[in-house]
């Protein structure tokens, strides 16, 4: 059994159908004015019309109710209490930053300068572009060092390219490096015989002597690797590569632990 609509419902339906056929529903106009009603900033005929609409429109009335209590709740959400731990953490972190004291003139002279430099550096590190900018500057410097006439590394890329394109000439690489380092240390040691440089020179000579056999083997394996690589013998090249790894291990051991038995004296395990 269906219930017949009462007279209020019928009247409401009639109003809606008239509005639908004429101006359309008045909800949007009402919603425009609701915030002013919530702030109690609506007077006169507008207020009367809006209140009359609210009596008959459940949706607008719900919005009006929520707007009413939002007036009180929203300002109450302006702060939250993060707790005492947060305050302590912030004060601890900012206590490590001396920039305020420096700016106020408490840190002067060298200390102030170092502080400002430190702050500047820290700011730079935080910038996302910093890494790219450093890479760019380094590239420019490298290009200038290698291409400009009279630059210290002028012609080096060409030499590297030539040596890569031609075959490995079998120069004992480690020995060259050792000799260059030795010459520099010897020069410095000549100026300060009994100083740290002198002791360093003696130490270098001792260690060079201790590693001469391992370095000879390393140079030999590198030479063979290069030659195998150029002749397309990949299997042999891999074996040489493994041997180089073993040489480097021995070199490390002989360099840093000269008092241990020489690596060649340790019997190698052979497959049975």
């Amino acid at each position: 059994m269906t219930r017949l609509p009462d007279s209020d419902d019928r009247r409401e339906d009639l109003v809606r159908s008239i509005l639908d056929r004429t101006s359309g529903p008045a909800c949007s106009r009402c919603l425009e004015m609701l915030p002013r009603l919530a702030r109690d900033d609506l007077a006169g005929l507008d207020r009367t019309l809006v209140q009359a609409h609210l009596e008959h429109c459940d949706q607008c009335r719900a919005v009006a109710v929520v707007l009413g209590w939002l007036q009180g709740e929203l300002p109450a959400m302006a702060t939250i209490d993060p707790g005492e731990e947060f305050t302590t953490a912030v004060l601890t972190r900012t206590a490590r930053l001396p920039s305020r004291a420096a700016a106020a003139g408490r840190l002067t002279g060298g200390a102030g300068l170092m502080d400002r430099l430190g702050n500047w550096w820290e700011r730079q590190l935080r910038r996302p572009l910093f890494v790219w900018q450093v890479a760019y500057v380094l590239t420019v410097i490298l290009v200038m060092l290698t291409t400009l006439p009279g630059a210290p590394l002028h012609g080096v890329p060409e030499q590297v390219r030539t040596s890569v394109q031609t075959a490995y000439v079998g120069v004992p690489l480690t020995e060259q490096v050792m000799q260059a380092a030795d010459r520099r240390v010897k020069n410095l040691a000549g100026l300060m015989i009994d100083s740290t440089w002198g002791r360093l020179h003696r130490e270098l000579v001792l260690r060079r002597a201790n590693t001469i056999r391992v370095r000879g083997g390393l140079d030999d394996h590198m030479s063979r690797l290069w030659s195998d690589f150029h002749q397309g013998r990949s299997g042999q090249a891999v074996l040489q590569f493994v041997a180089i790894g073993r040489d480097l291990k021995r070199l490390w051991r002989a360099w840093w632990h000269p008092d241990l038995p020489f690596p060649e004296q340790v019997p190698e395990r052979r497959p049975s």
């Binding site: 009006a64 109710v65 929520v66």
Partner: peptide, 12 residues
Amino acid sequence: GPGGDGEATVPG
């Protein structure tokens, strides 16, 4: 809304 958490008082 009015049927839920909010009170059903229309402002003004």
